[in-house]
Design a protein around this nucleic acid. Structure first.
Lengths: 245, 245
DNA sequence: CGCGAGCTTGATGCCGATCAATGCATGTGG
DNA sequence: CCACATGCATTGATCGGCATCAAGCTCGCG
């Protein structure tokens, strides 16, 4: 999310899982080098996705999962009548496509918010390998389970938090994930618009903008367009939790 | 019956997966009889949960998944400051406990809304068996994926629907699942309170009650306490979708 | 430079929360 | 059996937070 993606558009050579700096956040967690080599053997392909384009769309046939190597994605579902809901933002090391396993079709769109590069993981082969490597199986199950738990957290947010609490929770979640990837966590550049944030949080873009302004007035943030400086993380944290009354 | 030493209220006899009337909605989907026998071997235990009691609670260690045989559950997460969110309602054939895989601890409470009976599926053994039986592996992955997709649908509901639309969607979802289990689908008894429905839908109980009343006034439902008669399902469906304007 | 996408800010209105009273079913003990 | 308590549901009155509508503003870019 932080780096300038325009230096190299296409990886000319393959980076093995064992050499990938995201391996501690991705599928290979807990695997030995020889196991990673086996995983590498099925993750033969890369794919670049230019900013604004879809990695897949709802209705597309499902064949592979994708691991984000560089770049930033959003996933969104939409109902018949055109209502739209962003269901998540994905960064390096996170898996995309889990929604497709259940019905062999994708049920949401995955759109790159900046030029991106993903590892293509043919699902059928992954299943086969997971039957041989219990470490891989375990990690895969953990990732799915954590996605479910994350979704439950979003439900809590959407069902019972107020606008500013939602935005605070969102920012803290983002910074935490960035910190896990070696970024500062107090200074970040949003890859998504106010409208996309609003869709994720169940708010209108004006409300998101107002909340940003209010946080700035209260000295918790410095906001310059999409560049956010977190000045008082504990205050944000307090908003998310015990702010009532 | 298993000679369980600590058997408080165990089923007097075991019903094999192959004979269970829920097998087409549960883990054994797509498995042969001999495969189901192998599954039976690890699903040796049953557990009864009286109404109002928890099958597990957030923070409990995770060891097993549970398949609902009879009865009705809710799952709910809560934040530090006591906010509470119902994340789902589970009925016969549905799995409980998937949230625990990611961290080896449960992250939500599962509470029986009526006296219930569940199959205990030791997770470690399930993993082992899934490595042998690709059909089991596939179905397990499908169930997890569908849970993720379901959660995305709830996010859409919470993020972008209005009160009556949410309740309509909720009722239609319930009736559809009941129909899949051989019930009429037009007449149902709610197992949960207005408050629990409200928590699930991100509404207050008064709002839920008012929406029920309004549906009744409009001739779409007949509401007598928890007994609901669906008089005009298409009208409900229309509310969920293209009601805008 | 002028255009347009995205962002900010203000004014107003509505949906659902909140507060409060009543109704209704079930259960308990006198 | 009734009196009473309790939990849940309904309904009304009022209030507040966020949506909506409507201008401007900022910045990148052709």
């Amino acid at each position: 999310m932080q780096s300038a993606p325009h230096a190299i558009r296409l990886e000319p050579f393959k980076v093995a899982c064992a050499n990938c700096n995201l391996r501690e956040l991705c599928l290979p967690v807990g695997m030995s080098v020889t196991q990673m080599d086996q995983l590498d053997a099925i993750v033969a392909n890369r794919r670049t996705v230019p900013r604004g384009e879809a990695l897949y769309r709802a209705g597309d046939g499902f064949a592979s999962l994708f691991a984000v190597r560089t770049g930033f994605f959003k996933t969104c579902v939409s109902s018949e009548d055109g209502r739209d809901q962003v269901t998540g933002f994905q960064m390096g090391g996170e898996l995309l496509g889990l929604d497709g396993i259940g019905t062999d079709r994708h049920t949401c769109d995955a759109v790159a918010l900046e030029d991106a590069n993903v590892c293509v993981i043919p699902y059928h082969q992954l299943e086969g390998l997971a039957r041989e490597l219990s470490d891989l199986q375990r990690q895969f199950h953990r990732i799915m389970s954590r996605e479910i738990v994350r979704d439950h957290g979003v439900m809590l947010l959407l069902g019972s938090m107020r606008a500013e609490e939602r935005l605070a929770a969102f920012l803290l979640n983002l910074t935490q994930r960035l910190r896990a990837r070696g970024f500062s966590g107090s200074s970040l550049i949003l890859r998504m618009t106010r409208e996309e944030i609003g869709s994720y949080l169940g708010l209108k873009l004006e409300t998101v903008s107002r909340a940003f302004s209010r946080f700035q007035d209260d000295g918790m943030l410095e906001v310059r367009q999409r560049h956010i400086e977190i000045l008082d993380a504990p205050a944000l944290q307090k908003l998310v939790n015990g702010s009532s009354c």
